[in-house]
Design a protein around this nucleic acid. Structure first.
Lengths: 236, 236
DNA sequence: CGTCCGCTTGACAACTGTCAACTGTTGTGG
DNA sequence: CCACAACAGTTGACAGTTGTCAAGCGGACG
């Protein structure tokens, strides 16, 4: 599939094989735009991503939608439902993919026997919490250009951990969706992309969704510089 | 202590008594400014808050600090450490309080025997994820005034769930700390408070840290109104 | 009593949102 | 095959919000 010979993220591979070995689950194929689950739907199962890309969105009454998060292979979907008993967001497939659904009750019982499974689950939830916190901090400290750069950096990092190519990434999101995630308007996202392109940090080919990343390190440096310039919102 | 005769949040009380009954733990008293754990410190234990208020902060190299979250009785501290093996933030006591520390390895073993404990833990982590997501959305959609209102609303809600008085709350945070949490400058926070006071949504007594909330419902309405006015950052 | 610190307020600058025009692509139907 | 509409994206001009800088107030504490 790619130049690195399917060297998937260790965690992702381990999670998938362990789950396959210990718990009964249901493989489900999804098509672009199809929902894995929807907000309000009662919580019964967790979903482990085997392939594809998924967006978590929150629908506001007006019909507008807010992008909350993007998930890749090895990620779990649906943790938000455990506490409340129903899901708070929609999980939508962005391309053809496969999720493995596991009944939560079953998983719970399996956890009492398999400590590795418990580790796996807690690790995934913990990572989810850390990830959300990183974004909380990013949103409260970074300006528009740096937010878009950080968005790309995270995407690249996610692909990197899964052994996929990172010099050319395909965002299956509109500018408006990216903006709704970053707290910006679509125009601000577009301008940010233009400025990043001017600084040679990204390149656009024929499609505006395909982003060339010549040097992912340079993106990190850009975000770091932006952080150190902003003495903003700091204490003493 | 208060008019409602110590009617604590059911969840919090249940969590505390269940933990006490099933797992060996260490009661630890903390004083204002004392750290429960610090960023970089290796992860060994989780901490369940028995009393007091705690802030989770992230220290940036420059010595500046970023407020990430505030915790109350019944909340767990330290989930972010599970995946990475060390804590990513500092947890600092804001007043005198008591936390119950439980070795994670021990807790894990106990979970294999006590399903209720597993439920409890997963519920807490799930709630943490939902909570962070709510704030992600708030930060990307709300203006300055609404963010401050939302901040107060959350604080009130947290006290309400624990059966404490909510008409008069004591923020143990400076304007700068609130600002760092909300992605605003201390001046913007101050101005937002002034505008909320003008609209009779809050009242300030002698101290600027004591906030009177005559009608917490009105705060909700204010945030809702603010949301519907902003067709911002929406998709189609 | 004086200093330090947290808070408020004002004036101005910078950034982002709003509105509008325009380009380019895609898909549909004549 | 072309005309057309629909849609994603870019760009410019301008307005609104928030950040920056500066001044001043008042309580806490030595």
């Amino acid at each position: 599939m790619n130049a690195t010979h399917e060297r998937d993220e260790p965690d992702a591979a381990a999670a998938l094989s362990l789950l396959q070995a210990t718990v009964p689950m249901h493989r489900r194929l999804v098509r672009p735009g199809e929902a894995v689950y929807r907000a309000g739907q009662s919580f019964t199962s967790l979903y482990l991503v085997n392939s594809g890309t998924y967006k978590i969105i929150h629908l506001v009454p007006d019909g507008r939608e807010q992008l909350v998060r993007v998930h890749f292979k090895g990620d779990w979907l649906g943790f938000d439902g455990i506490a409340q008993g129903c899901h708070g967001c929609d999980a939508i497939a962005m391309d053809i993919g496969e999720v493995w659904s596991v009944r939560y009750a079953t998983l719970q019982q399996a956890c009492t026997r398999q400590t590795e499974l418990l580790d796996l689950l807690h690790g995934a939830m913990s990572r989810e919490i850390s990830h959300d916190r990183e974004w909380l901090m990013a949103l409260s400290t970074l300006g528009a250009d740096a937010r878009v750069a950080e968005f790309l950096r995270h995407w690249v990092e996610a692909l990197q951990r899964r052994g996929l190519r990172t010099d050319q990434i395909l965002l299956r999101l509109t500018r408006a969706e990216i903006g709704s995630f970053l707290g910006l308007t679509l125009e601000s996202v577009s301008r940010a992309f233009s400025r990043l392109a001017q600084e040679q940090l990204v390149q656009f080919e024929t499609s505006h969704r395909e982003v060339g990343i010549p040097d992912s390190q340079a993106l990190c440096r850009f975000v770091q510089r932006s952080l150190s310039r902003e003495s903003t919102a700091a204490v003493s």
